[in-house]
């Protein structure tokens, strides 16, 4: 197991290094000098040079890359060009919206997909199964931001059950915070729940055909008991992988959903920074999201190996 963890860890570090290089290079080739953008076209050369020095733009590229990566490792994400505040502070505020939203959506996706998948698998080929599978086809095709607009139309504007947008803030209490995240979370979760339902169903069907399931039935367990005691646990391996992938997908997906609901999360921060050409913020936030995704995949791999010992020896 230790060898497996070390191998995964090495590939994690390598992926992060390459990803940071790609992001840094892309931002480097971006046209426009942030200092002259901030000061406008009439800036004095001396002022420009002073600002460039202040922003750390006057050192060689390699040094700047190392400064950036070194800073990120110690929690220093640089200073925003436009707001003149540390990026880490801006990110901390925004993550308090984006991360709970992604987790909320993941919880909803699991809560919908597990019962639906088990229901469909236990009624394979019958009307209930066909109904669930038809619904998942629709769910997979649903663009989440469009679904979000429809949810606003029905539940915020006509029924007035939820706010149409904005974020109440966690200081107003857990309920107020969760209420403003409910419609965005449903919009994010439903298409993912459709995918997870299909995975859950096919994983269960794979397991149901196994010899040990027949043995369990022969031993005298009922169909229901076999499903709950032996089927579900063995079906969890593919399901866990997809849940891990969905979390990184949902985290990145918040970027678009935040635009529909005017939520002050990481997504809005990225878009505001793009239009202000505040590239240090774009650079650091993008790196942060990529880091989160790579880290989640790493943990999924480990969870995988912990659940299925066969994978450890193979690696």
């Amino acid at each position: 197991m230790l060898r497996y963890v070390l191998k995964r860890l090495a590939s994690l570090v390598l992926s992060l290094a390459v990803a940071s290089l790609i992001i840094f290079t892309l931002i480097e080739v971006a046209p426009g000098d942030p200092a002259s953008f901030m000061l406008g076209i009439n800036a004095q050369p001396e002022t420009l040079a002073a600002l460039r020095a202040e922003l750390g733009l006057d050192v060689p590229k390699v040094q700047r890359y190392l400064n950036w990566v070194g800073g990120m490792l110690t929690g220093d994400f640089g200073t925003s060009y436009t707001y003149r505040t540390p990026v880490s502070e801006m990110v901390a505020d925004r993550i308090a919206v984006s991360l709970p939203l992604a987790l909320y959506a993941l919880a909803l996706s699991i809560l919908i997909a597990f019962p639906a998948g088990i229901f469909a698998a236990s009624r394979r080929g019958q009307a209930g199964d066909l109904g669930v599978m038809g619904a998942t086809q629709l769910g997979v095709a649903l663009p989440n931001f469009w679904f979000a607009m429809m949810l606003v139309l029905v539940f915020a504007i006509h029924l007035r059950w939820f706010p149409a947008g904005g974020f109440a803030g966690w200081d107003k209490g857990l309920i107020a915070g969760l209420t403003s995240l409910t419609l965005p979370a449903i919009a994010l979760a439903l298409p993912q729940a459709a995918i997870l339902t299909r995975v859950m169903r096919s994983a269960l069907l794979d397991v149901l055909g196994e010899d040990y399931m027949r043995t369990a039935r022969a031993k005298g367990l009922s169909a229901r008991q076999t499903l709950w005691r032996h089927g579900l646990r063995n079906a969890m391996i593919p399901v866990l992988t997809i849940i891990g992938l969905q979390f990184s997908f949902l985290f990145a997906g918040t970027i678009i959903i935040e635009q529909v609901f005017y939520l002050p999360g990481l997504g809005r921060l990225i878009f505001q920074s793009i239009s202000a050409r505040d590239l240090i913020v774009v650079e650091s936030v993008v790196m942060l999201v990529v880091f989160a995704v790579i880290l989640i995949n790493f943990f999924v791999d480990l969870a995988y190996a912990a659940v299925d010992p066969r994978l450890r020896s193979r690696a």
Binding site: I22, L26, A252, G253, I255, V282, V286, V289, V290
Partner: peptide
């Protein structure tokens, strides 16, 4: 490892 959306944002930002 780059979420599709993030990659698109990065490319269009630049």
């Amino acid at each position: 490892a780059f979420p599709l959306l993030v990659m698109a944002i990065l490319i269009t930002a630049v």
